[in-house]
């Protein structure tokens, strides 16, 4: 068969055939590995939540430890009302389970743009976040007979997303533990937010609930801190600011929920 390898027709045919074959191969690979990858992501999430209440978990025992410590999973809306609650085993396909709320995806698809567009105008930001209809998961844990609440949060660092899990004590003010991570911050600078020297600074600090706009501050490196703030990372100013923004945007939602829940408990 004499085919002119350099004719336009052949070139187009080859390119199209190649794309179809490669596309199909990649689709098959991706689909067949997806369940395993989702399982890995869920384990990682369990490890992070446990990390916030200072329980060291590995991938193998994360599931067991999670069901041991986490007693209830709650999702709340922006004004602090409870939306859903779940206990016991996690069903990965049950979208109403607060554990399956993808906070990173919600942030990426809704909140990020809102913050970018109206971050400088607090009232507008507040009303637009309320309209976004995003639910916030919170994990109620019991460790050594004390109740702890783990609040997941997502924000933006210098190069990409940053996220964290912060555990609050029963007074809904004191930070019990925190765990931060990032996708692509600069190693040695912004990437240090995941190191323990930074997260340890949060322990024992208190949220300033009287000040809903700045409940907690991450200050510029070297500043004098009080009980409502921590020292940021030198050379990682933008990442530190991202952590600050993330905390101050997310904590008010959880605090509203805690106060609501407290009121209801008092009424009963």
């Amino acid at each position: 068969m004499a085919v002119n390898k350099n004719s336009n027709g052949y070139t187009f045919f080859f390119a199209i055939a190649m794309v179809v074959v490669v596309g199909a191969a990649l689709a098959v690979t991706s689909q067949s590995l997806k369940p395993r990858q989702q399982e890995n992501d869920a384990d990682k999430k369990r490890m992070d939540i446990l990390g916030a209440i200072k329980v060291e978990a590995t991938r193998t025992n994360a599931g067991d430890l999670f069901s041991e410590y986490v007693v209830e999973r709650v999702s709340v809306d922006y004004i602090g009302n409870m939306v859903n609650t779940a206990t016991g085993d996690i069903n990965a396909t049950d979208k109403s389970d607060p554990f399956n709320i993808d906070v990173k995806k919600d942030y990426r698809s809704f909140i990020k743009r809102i913050v970018k567009e109206s971050g400088k105008n607090p009232e507008e930001l507040d009303s637009r976040l309320a309209e976004a209809g995003v639910n916030y998961p919170v994990f109620k844990c019991v460790k050594n007979d004390t109740t702890l609440y783990v609040c997941p949060m997502v924000g933006t660092g210098l190069w990409g997303p940053i996220w964290g899990y912060v555990a609050l004590e029963e007074d809904f003010k004191t930070i019990y533990g925190a765990k931060f991570d990032h996708k692509s911050e600069t190693p040695g600078l912004g990437a240090e937010i995941k190191e323990s020297f930074f997260t340890l600074k949060f322990e024992g600090k208190k949220l300033n609930v009287e000040e809903p706009k700045t409940m907690f501050s991450v200050l510029k490196g070297g500043a004098i801190t009080n009980e409502h703030s921590v020292d940021g990372i030198t050379g990682g100013t933008i990442t530190s600011k991202g952590v600050d923004e993330m905390l101050n945007r997310t904590f008010p939602v959880y605090v509203k929920y805690f106060l609501n829940a407290n009121d209801q408990r008092a009424e009963r």
């Binding site: 080859f14 390119a15 190649m18 794309v19 490669v22 191969a25 990649l26 690979t29 991706s30 590995l33 395993r36 990858q37 890995n40 384990d43 990682k44 991938r59």
Partner: peptide, 23 residues
């Protein structure tokens, strides 16, 4: 371009396999 597509496809497969088995 063909070389690039071949390499890219193989790399994506490696990446997916690592994500699934060695997270």
């Amino acid at each position: 371009i063909v070389q690039l597509v071949v390499i890219a496809a193989l790399v994506i497969i490696v990446n997916e396999v690592l994500k699934a088995f060695l997270p």
